[in-house]
Design a protein around this nucleic acid. Structure first.
Lengths: 195, 195
DNA sequence: GTCTATATGCTGATAGAC
DNA sequence: GTCTATCAGCATATAGAC
């Protein structure tokens, strides 16, 4: 193979991010030391700084990558025709996508206060962008008369909180699988916005 | 007055808990030092240990007090007659009670992973107890045929996540006051569980 | 690319003076 | 009841050898 002797840079970077994500999710950003992350990867602490400028950037990159991935995956969904179908698609997508990456979801919600102001604003912007995809569906359904909502903005936030809440109690191998959970939640979502 | 000279113990304890709650909510348990808490109260770090055995106990006491208060206030609510009225009462109570103490709610949700196993189990037990007050309402309504739910347990968790979510975006002086918000959420809750 | 060594400072908690 | 002083250890980040 053409790989140069001793060169591990192609995999060390991603492994640092994986280890950091897992540790941040388990113990929290402030409670995790750079030494812990280095130990999990199998390098010395000093080596981390070849891949990240500091601890704050490590956190920010994890959160931005998560939000970017969420937005890209959301945009890549096939476009359903009616507001009702689009809402069903959003509900299923949101639950399944979030259940597949619990650590990234957890860190992205819990560590917002550990971002510096600039980084916080960037993540908040991406989060609002995602919320607007749901709000657009609700507004369309409202205009067509298939939904009846007292307040579109509050309904958006209420539904997202409800759907993301699945991550707080879901455990693999539990009573219900992700597909079944998505169906049950869809039943409640559908009724909550019904005309 | 009969107060002894120099004795401030009657107020220092509560002030320590207030300062700790505020700082934990803003920066997170792991990121806050005992010296910071002491500074906020106006004493030296060593003096804190007259009122708490260690930092962990300080966190646990805050969370347990919050859950105890929540359960006591919930139990003290007047008992409505029908499942529908009880659900409406629960919805309003939950939103208003949580909006009044954002720091305690925030800490009680975000710092669970910083509790030691024993303390974690205690808080989890109280949380489940509170959830059961909602689940009992849903079960009664289901038995009477006024509600239709695909899954009582999931509906309980979904509704609580939705209601508690208000705390993540509510800001005083915003577009809507707590009463109006509670009304809007009640509309969605009512429909989500309707037969 | 990774290592060791190090600078500088903060951590939780305790002992003992007053 | 509060203070000062202190212990032993860990934090982030950098410098320079290999």
């Amino acid at each position: 193979m053409a790989r140069k002797t001793g060169s591990k840079s192609e995999i060390t970077g991603p492994r640092i991010r994986e280890a950091a994500l897992s540790l941040f999710a388990q113990q929290g950003y402030a409670a995790v030391s750079m030494r812990q992350i280095a130990r999990a990867v199998g390098v010395q602490a000093g080596a981390l700084y070849l891949y990240t400028s500091d601890k704050q950037s490590l956190l920010f990159d994890l959160m931005r990558d998560h939000m970017d991935g969420l937005l890209a995956a959301s945009a890549a969904e096939p476009k359903a025709a009616t507001p009702l179908d689009r809402l069903q698609q959003f509900t299923r997508f949101h639950i399944l996508y979030h259940l597949e990456r619990p650590d990234a979801v957890f860190v992205s919600y819990m560590e917002l206060r550990n971002l510096n102001p600039e980084n916080f604003a960037a993540i908040e912007g991406l989060r609002r962008q995602y919320e607007q995809t749901l709000e657009a569906i609700l507004k369309d359904g409202l205009a067509e008369g298939v939904f009846r909502l007292p307040d579109t903005k509050l309904a958006t936030l209420a539904l997202i909180a409800m759907l993301t809440g699945v991550n707080t109690w879901y455990r693999q191998g539990g009573r219900l699988g992700p597909d079944k959970i998505a169906s049950i939640y869809w039943d409640m979502v559908r009724k909550a916005v019904a005309a």
